[in-house]
Structures are given as structure tokens and as C-alpha cells.
């Protein structure tokens, strides 16, 4: 564990708390222009469920296990809230990204490009590929509505920072322990790349007090 990875994981936690806070505060997932994509949240729940199949078999540390349990539980809780508790305020007409294609693409790629052709490894690889593109329905929704509530942008910023710090962590680990993981690196670079446009607008507008609005 190094500082970059620790802060990255904490930013990931922060992003989930921001999302839960927003949902509880507005009692809905669809404020006037602050919509949260159900598809993205469902994809994240799928990511955690398929990645942490080693939860009981492979004990790394109390930290590792606690985080895994938290990510699985919180993602399922968010999906539950959106599907049942706040269903009426969730507008599927804006959540139109074709998620089945990225799920299919990630599954196909996981079957072809993996470290070992075992059920657990293919599921793990699938989760890595799927996480890389899981934010797309949310970004697509943002593009469609053209603007976002500040708290939604903070959520995306926390998520993007978590991904960016993982890149730094990999460089650090490469130099300090000769850690190499091409599947995770390439998927992670793609995932972080998806946030570039968002980061640009976040820094140039939201942090200067302006509303998040697409040009």
C-alpha cells in the first residue's frame, strides 16, 4: 500500500458517500438537472460482484476485505434505492446509453484477453474492462441534459480523481516493486481518459463558481 493508492481508495469512498448524500438529501435521483444514471450504478454493482468473487477465498488484509464488502454493499444499496425507493423520480428516457453493448464487449474481450482461462479470472478481467466504461451512461446523460448540479459534478470529480491516482500508484509500484499488470493498466488508462473532458469543464467552470454547463 502506498499513499497514492490509499488516497485513491478514499476518494472512491468519498464519491460513494457524495452520491448517497445527494440521493438522501434530494430524496430522489432526478433533481431538476442532476440526474444520476441508473445504468452506470447497475454496471458498478456488476463490476464489484464479478471482481470480488475471491472475497472469502483470498484474504489479503482487513482493509482489503472491509473495502470489498463496502463496495459490494453500497453499490447494491444504491441500485436498490434507484430501482425501488426512488423509482418514480428516475427518468429512463434520459438514461439511453446502450449499456448492453459495453457489457457484451467487456465479456467478449475478457474471454479473449485474460491472464488465465478460469471462471474466476475471466470474471475478474470482465470486471476490469467493464469498470473502464461503466461511467459512459452517466457521461452520456450529462451530455444529453447539457448541465449538471454541483453535487453531481463533485461525485464525478471524486471518481475521476480516484482513477487518476491509480495511474500514479501504478507508476510508483512499477519503480518500487516492479509491479506489472497490463490488463489493469490499459483499462485504467482508458477509464481515466474518459474523464478528460469532464475535468476540463469542472476546473474551468465549477471550481470558479459557475454552473456545470456544456458549451
Amino acid at each position: 500500500m502506498n499513499l497514492f493508492r490509499l488516497v485513491a481508495d478514499l476518494m472512491h469512498l468519498v464519491s460513494i458517500f457524495i452520491l448517497l448524500l445527494k440521493m438522501q438529501k434530494t430524496r430522489s435521483v432526478a433533481g431538476r438537472c442532476s440526474r444520476i444514471s441508473f445504468k452506470t450504478q447497475a454496471l458498478y454493482a456488476t463490476v464489484f460482484l464479478t471482481r470480488y468473487t475471491d472475497l472469502f477465498a483470498n484474504f489479503q488484509s482487513l482493509y482489503n476485505t472491509t473495502m470489498k464488502v463496502f463496495f459490494i454493499a453500497s453499490s447494491l444499496y444504491i441500485v436498490f434505492l434507484m430501482k425501488f425507493k426512488f423509482k418514480a423520480t428516475n427518468d429512463p428516457r434520459l438514461d439511453t446509453f446502450k449499456a448492453q453493448y459495453v457489457v457484451g464487449g467487456a465479456a467478449a474481450l475478457a474471454l479473449i484477453v485474460n491472464y488465465a482461462f478460469t471462471v474466476q479470472e475471466v470474471l475478474w478481467t470482465f470486471s476490469i474492462y467493464l469498470e473502464a466504461v461503466a461511467i459512459l451512461p452517466q457521461l452520456f446523460m450529462l451530455t444529453k441534459t447539457g448541465e449538471a448540479e454541483v453535487i453531481t459534478t463533485h461525485y464525478l470529480f471524486a471518481l475521476g480523481t480516484y482513477r487518476g491516482l491509480y495511474l500514479v500508484n501504478w507508476i510508483y509500484r512499477y519503480w518500487t516493486e516492479y509491479y506489472v499488470d497490463w490488463i489493469v493498466w490499459i483499462a485504467g488508462a482508458v477509464q481515466t481518459g474518459l474523464y478528460c473532458d469532464f475535468f476540463y469543464i469542472y476546473f474551468t467552470k465549477v471550481l470558479k463558481g459557475a454552473k456545470f454547463e456544456l458549451p
Binding site: R5, D9, H12, D54, A57, N58, Q60, N64, M67, K68, F71, Y115, A116, T118, Q120, E121, W124, Y166, D181, V184
Partner: peptide, 10 residues
């Protein structure tokens, strides 16, 4: 080292 063992990141 098995492939499973090296997945130490979240």
C-alpha cells in the same frame, strides 16, 4: 505465483 494471488488492488 498464481494469477489470483496478485490481484491485491481494489
Amino acid at each position: 505465483e498464481s494469477a489470483e494471488a496478485k490481484h491485491d488492488e481494489l
